[in-house]
Structure formats: C-alpha cells, structure tokens
Simulated scan of single mutants.
Amino acid sequence: MKKLFLCCFALTMVLGCSNEKAGQVDEAEGFTLLQRDATTLEASYRSGGSSVRAMVTESSPNIIEVTYDFGQPIIGFRIDYNQGVGRFMPNGALDAAQARLINGLAEGLGKIVPEQDTQRTRIEDTAMRQTSFMQIVPVGEALSPYEYVAERGWTHISCTCGQQNIGGYTRQAGRGCSCNGGDNGCKGRCGQGCGITSTPACVGSTAYTQDCAKHDYGLGSFAAASDDYSFASNNCSCSGVGTCY
C-alpha cells in the first residue's frame, strides 16, 4: 500500500510539474497579433527565447503612443499629429538580437496591415511607419531622447531611379530593387529597403526624401530622418506585393 501511495505521489508531482511548465509558455514563436481595433494595435514577435511587444494606441484624438517593450530596453514614441511633433523616448540601447526581433515584427505587421497607406487606419499606418523607423535605430549605441517637428519639413526626391540631389550630395536614388547604389534597393525610401533576391511588401511608407536617402548612404543620421518617417506624405505609389517599388 505504501509503495502504491508513493507511485501515485510521484505521478502527481510529474503531472503537476508538466502543467506548471506548460503554463509558463505564454507566447508562441514568431509573430502574434494580440489586439487590433480602431484605437489600439498590439503585437509581439518571439524568437529564440527573446521577444518584443509593440503597443500602438491613440491616447487622445490624433495623438498616438507607441512602445516597443523588450523587457530591457523599452523604447517609446509619442506622435502628435495635431501639432506635428514627435518624441523619441528610449531607456537603453538596442543589441543585434533585438534588432532582428524588430525585423520579424515588421515582416509580421506587413502581412496584416493593408499594403496601400490609403487603406490603413491611422493606428495601422503609425505602427508601420514607427516599426520601419525602429529598423534604422543604431545598434549597440547609447540612445538619447529627442523631439522632432514636422514643420521643419522634408524634401521629396523623384520616384524614378537615377542620379539625384539628396541634399548636398549626388547619389542614385528612387524606386526599384536595382536602384541600390551597391547595396539594398529603393534608396531614399523612408522604410525598409528591398534587396535583389528579397522584395518585401510595401511596409513603412512610400515616401522618398532627401534625409532618408542621406541615411541610406551613411551621410545623415537616423534622427534627422525621424520627421520624414513619421510625417512625410507618400509621394511614390506601391506597385504590389513581391515587386520592386
């Protein structure tokens, strides 16, 4: 009888431990959409035991709060479309693994958010634009908070690929995977570039500007392109999924 009791006790402990372990797995690998409505978009991307959770919410009319929570750091934005003012609010540096999480998050968002910006809600468009901006935030560098203002403006460049003035420099810029200057294509787009063999959907924006082109060529800072990413109007159309644009 004692032996039977011990066996039952051991089995109970094993099942209990198994259930406890299963309960600890609260996020699936890959991209997960957690919430999506008129005022909120929440999503996560998990890989290799690490994750990032993005929360985009309209705290008041035309004011969008955006956070990217890695546990450590947490990077936030406040985009005020009424005043045309944005704030970048980091509390630490990004590492290479976290940058890869952002790439996965951007890819996942690109599959659920309408491709054409005219079909997106403000929440969806902000989510795509700021996640695209997160892809150019420097890795392994101390990050400081700053404010950027839309009224300081941006300068659009031509959508047609060619040698263009990108603000004191002449470089190849414009739509197309072949418009690469020896690197990723779509030089000058305020969003993810496109490679020769990898042609992503239209994520981020289809705004092509001088500051974004300067950043693409290492001639300008990511901070200088902040207002372009958040506020610049889309001057170049998207030609569809899986195409160079």
Rank of each mutant, 00 (worst) to 15 (best):
V52S: 05
A10S: 12
G242V: 11
T155A: 13
Y81C: 11
G84Q: 08
L101S: 02
T209I: 07
L33M: 15
T57Q: 14
S230H: 07
M134T: 09
E124I: 11
T57M: 12
G218V: 02
N103K: 02
L33I: 11
E29S: 07
C161W: 10
D95K: 05
I123Y: 02
E147T: 14
S50A: 10
G174V: 00
A225E: 04
G195H: 13
I157Q: 08
S205H: 08
E151R: 13
G86N: 11
D216F: 10
T243M: 03
F231H: 06
D95R: 07
A97I: 04
E20H: 08
A106N: 09
A201V: 08
Q135M: 10
G110S: 12
V25D: 06
E151S: 15
V113N: 10
Y148K: 05
C194Y: 08
T160S: 12
R78S: 15
C194F: 09
Q130W: 02
G204Y: 06
I75L: 12
G49T: 01
R36D: 15
G108S: 07
I75G: 08
G84N: 06
Q172E: 13
M134G: 04
I112H: 03
A207R: 04
L15W: 14
A38W: 00
Q163D: 13
T32Q: 14
G168T: 06
R120A: 00
Q24V: 00
S51C: 03
N184M: 11
A28E: 12
C8V: 14
P90S: 00
L4R: 12
G153V: 07
E115V: 07
I196L: 10
G195A: 15
D211P: 00
S60T: 11
T32L: 08
G220R: 00
D80I: 02
M89K: 13
T160V: 05
L109S: 10
V139C: 14
T243F: 03
G86W: 12
T39V: 13
G140I: 05
A223T: 09
S233R: 08
L94H: 05
C177Y: 14
I196N: 13
Q83S: 15
T131R: 11
N62Y: 03
D125W: 01
A224C: 05
T118A: 15
N184D: 09
Y148W: 13
S144R: 11
E65T: 01
V149M: 04
D117R: 01
S47K: 04
F88S: 01
G140A: 02
T118M: 10
V203E: 07
C238S: 14
D69L: 09
G176N: 02
M1C: 10
C212H: 06
N235E: 01
Q130P: 01
T209M: 05
I166E: 12
S221C: 08
Q24C: 01
K3Y: 07
G92V: 12
Q192I: 09
R129N: 03
M128P: 03
T206L: 02
S233C: 00
C190W: 00
N62H: 11
N62S: 15
I123N: 01
L6Y: 10
G182W: 04
P138W: 06
G220L: 03
T32W: 00
Y81D: 15
Q98D: 01
M55W: 01
S144P: 02
K2V: 04
A38R: 05
E147K: 05
K3W: 03
S239C: 06
